[in-house]
Write a protein that binds this DNA or RNA. Structure first.
Ligand SMILES: [Mn+2]
Ligand SMILES: [Mn+2]
Ligand SMILES: [Mn+2]
Ligand SMILES: [Mn+2]
Lengths: 232, 232
DNA sequence: TCCGATGTTTAGGTATACCTAATAAATAGG
DNA sequence: CCTATTTATTAGGTATACCTAAACATCGGA
């Protein structure tokens, strides 16, 4: 079936590949391996190779691909990926703020709709929301021109020394974890005191100004990104 | 490509077939011919036959189909069709009232999004709008349970006798005509005086309480449905 | 440096939803 | 009532996006 193609010669499937490459490539746009993509997209490695070859061979290629050496986005691919991420995060913000969705349900809906809204829809919800720069999980929303600030935050699990932090963002993909995080006051902007620990120990944190420490599960800790604060 | 399937074993394509059969079958649920469907969906007749056979052969068939004798919706098919029409009209109302879309642009966006929103999204926009019963073109919005009132209206082109009418609804599919209609004050609820005419004559109307008559183009007249009013 | 584990690609196949061209059924006109 | 036209179906083919299994590269150790 003629999978619905967007104007730019993209499709729902292609969009998802581009987004995955953007995310997995990270800020330095490291080459992404087939295995990493296969894992991320829950698709067989052979299917990944196929798609990457197609994307690289197109008239206006969306990726740079070399056999056995991974892929990177071309500038056209990066542009489209950021456009889709903008859609995703604007939709999440809209669902949360205008339609009163519970935080843990916005991601799934946005993951679908991001591929099907028009430029007008994008523009209208952005206007309705006052052109927001941050989504409900704390992630930056790319601008219409395709710019997105670097996240200066670090993973909570990478900090062993302890200290005081502000929560920058939470991962949006696992609804259960996200609901648990929110139920415990762990959301962007919240303050958090971390006890020093060894790599194998659980993370024990104080949220806000509560006196009793809270032990984060592995899943919860891995989904939190934080920024250090000077205490004053 | 695994065309996105909704929970009910439907898909964007199937949804559009079901909607077309609902509309073309009319209130009495007349059998719909392959040609009519081919025309409506801009798809080759052979493709229609193919799809109808598939839909009729399914475990839980969405249509009743007999070779050379057209199709009707099964009760499951009718249920789904009304669900999609509900999505469509709620989305149109939402785009118009909440996102301030121009009237002539809501249809195209709704035509796409109707297939991809969740039950939660449907429920949330319905709530936001106060559970509306009529969309911006004057069409009834099916209820959550799949009920939709009959339209008692008639086509403007069918009236030769003249008289005073209220505009019940306008067709939403042609953006240009719709914009023209709206620009001339022709929208649901507006009052309209029709001069008597012969079948070949153009329709000349007075809109609202304006004194100067307006000649409707064939396209415009065909897109208007009206209800007679007692003048008092 | 060769060897095997791991990762990647090729080869061949499926389902959806379209298409065109050829064929068959239904219907309408003489 | 029989044929010509219209309408519909069958047959065979395309593109997208997946899959599994088999073949092939790459790279880290021994
Ligand atoms: Mn998300
Ligand atoms: Mn997506
Ligand atoms: Mn519409
Ligand atoms: Mn549609």
């Amino acid at each position: 079936m003629p999978a619905r193609r967007q104007a730019n010669g993209s499709s729902e499937s292609i969009d998802n590949y581009l987004k995955a490459i953007l995310t997995l490539g990270g800020p330095q746009e490291i080459r992404v391996t087939s295995t990493a993509l296969a894992e991320r997209l829950s698709v067989a490695p052979a299917s990944i190779t196929n798609m990457l070859q197609k994307l690289a061979a197109a008239e206006r290629p969306l990726v740079e691909y070399e056999r056995h050496r991974g892929v990177r986005l071309s500038s056209a691919g990066k542009k489209r990926a950021l456009e889709v991420v903008r859609h995703h995060r604007l939709i999440e913000t809209f669902l949360y703020q205008v339609l009163d969705y519970p935080i843990e349900e916005v991601h799934e809906e946005a993951e679908r709709l991001e591929h099907f809204i028009s430029e007008r829809f994008e523009e209208r919800i952005a206007a309705k929301l006052g052109h927001p720069q941050i989504d409900p999980h704390g992630h930056f929303i790319p601008t219409m021109e395709g710019h997105m600030p670097q996240q200066a935050s670090i993973r909570l699990t990478e900090v062993l020394a302890g200290g005081t932090f502000v929560i920058h963002s939470v991962d949006d993909r696992d609804a259960r974890t996200l609901r648990e995080l929110e139920a415990n006051g762990i959301k962007p902007g919240a303050k958090l005191k971390l006890k020093p620990r060894t790599p194998t120990e659980a993370c024990s944190v104080n949220i806000g100004r509560s006196a009793k420490p809270f032990d984060l599960s592995r899943a919860m800790a891995a989904d939190i990104r934080i920024v250090p604060v000077e205490k004053n």
